[in-house]
Structures are given as structure tokens and as C-alpha cells.
């Protein structure tokens, strides 16, 4: 019994063959991957900048880092990896031509991902209401700059997820072009996740507690 969304004989999806997907990957994905690698390289340089400045005053950096609440970092990581899982499931559904399922996973990924934004705003609010800002010391300059830059990437990813959800809703099935956009958006979203996986331990967990 074919799935009503995936009846290949009655209504074949536009991306029926893996070969077609592979060709599209070769044509479109390099641009996205170049952007992602370049962006990640910039973040890597910022990691080095943070660690080099940390060497100049380890005590100050450690005393500041210990004031960060690890629970926020753990919660944010769990939110991003869970949202990332839903994006993987969305890509798999899109690959199978399952439009409704794809939209469902994209929506779930967006809603779970929104939790990161809420958590980050609460964390920033607590810090700022305690008088801790970028001007407090070099550690917090890096803290706000790095997590702020990451937050802007997060906002971009959320917009991408919303746009993909709308685009997938405009078609009867998932076209090759939309699939390609979904896959590109998914790669970007995973990059947001990946950068946080390094930012969290570097900012929160290097300090002896």
C-alpha cells in the first residue's frame, strides 16, 4: 500500500532518482559549503583570539567563566541537537517526496529551535540585570561577541527554516529545487549547531569548578 503522499506510480515526485539528487548536489551544494567553511573558519579564528587573550589573564577569565550557568549551556546544546535531528528527518522526508511530513519536521525543528532564542534572551537578561556587560572585562567582551555573533547566525537559520516551511507548502510534492533549498538550509542549521558545540565548552567548561 503506497503512502498517499508518495505514490510514485500516480504522482511521481520530481526528485524520484538518487542520481538526480546527486547531480543537483554537485551543481548547487558547493556554494553553500564554501560559505559554511568560510564562516566556520572565521569562528575558528575567534576561538584562537579568545584562547590567546585568555592566556594573558587566566585568573580573570576563569573567575568570569565560573559565573556562567552551565545549565543554560547544556539546555541550549540539547535544544540545538534536537532541532538538528528534526531537520535531518525533514531532509529524509523531502528526499522521499513526502511534502506534509517534511513540513511537519521543519515546523517542529523551528519550534524546538525557538527555545534556544528564549533561553539565550533569559541568560543575557540575567547577566545584564546583574550589571555584567561587554565592558565588564575582556572575558565578557568575548562572551557577548561570540555568543552574539552565533545568535545572529541562529536567527538567520530560524528565518531559513520558516521560509523552507512556506516553500514546501506551495507545492503538491517536493520538487528538486525545493529539495535542494531544504538540504542547503539544513546544512546551514547544522553549522549553527556545530559552532555552539565548540562555543559552549570553550566559554563555560574550561574553568575548574
Amino acid at each position: 500500500m503506497p503512502h498517499p503522499e508518495n505514490d510514485m506510480t500516480q504522482n511521481p515526485p520530481d526528485l524520484a532518482t538518487e542520481e538526480a539528487v546527486s547531480i543537483l548536489r554537485g551543481r548547487h551544494l558547493p556554494g553553500v559549503l564554501v560559505f559554511i567553511i568560510a564562516d566556520m573558519a572565521v569562528f575558528c579564528m575567534l576561538f584562537v583570539g579568545f584562547m590567546v587573550d585568555r592566556m594573558k589573564d587566566v585568573a580573570l577569565f576563569n573567575n568570569s567563566a565560573i559565573a556562567l550557568d552551565v545549565r543554560f549551556g547544556v539546555a541550549n546544546t540539547l535544544i540545538l541537537v534536537t532541532s538538528g535531528l528534526f531537520v535531518v528527518l525533514a531532509v529524509n522526508a523531502a528526499r522521499a517526496g513526502l511534502r506534509k511530513t517534511t513540513r511537519g519536521w521543519l515546523l517542529l525543528s523551528f519550534l524546538v529551535g525557538a527555545g534556544f532564542g528564549v533561553s539565550k534572551i533569559v541568560e543575557y537578561s540575567i547577566k545584564i540585570s546583574s550589571g555584567i556587560t561587554m565592558q565588564t572585562n575582556p572575558f565578557y567582551m568575548y562572551y557577548y561577541a561570540l555568543t552574539g555573533a552565533h545568535f545572529l547566525h541562529f536567527v538567520g537559520g530560524m528565518i531559513a527554516l520558516a521560509v523552507l516551511w512556506v516553500l514546501a507548502g506551495r507545492e503538491a510534492t517536493v520538487s528538486r529545487n525545493t529539495f535542494n533549498l531544504i538540504e542547503s538550509g539544513a546544512l546551514y542549521w547544522h553549522m549553527v549547531d556545530l559552532l555552539w558545540l565548540f562555543l559552549f565548552p570553550m566559554l563555560y567548561l574550561l574553568v575548574p569548578r
Binding site: 541537537v81 538538528g84 549547531d193 558545540l197
Partner: peptide
């Protein structure tokens, strides 16, 4: 963790 995201999720 990062490698798992890169190799499998990506």
C-alpha cells in the same frame, strides 16, 4: 560531538 554532526547530520 562536532564530528558526529559533520559526518552524519551534515
Amino acid at each position: 560531538k562536532g564530528r558526529a554532526v559533520m559526518m552524519y547530520f551534515m
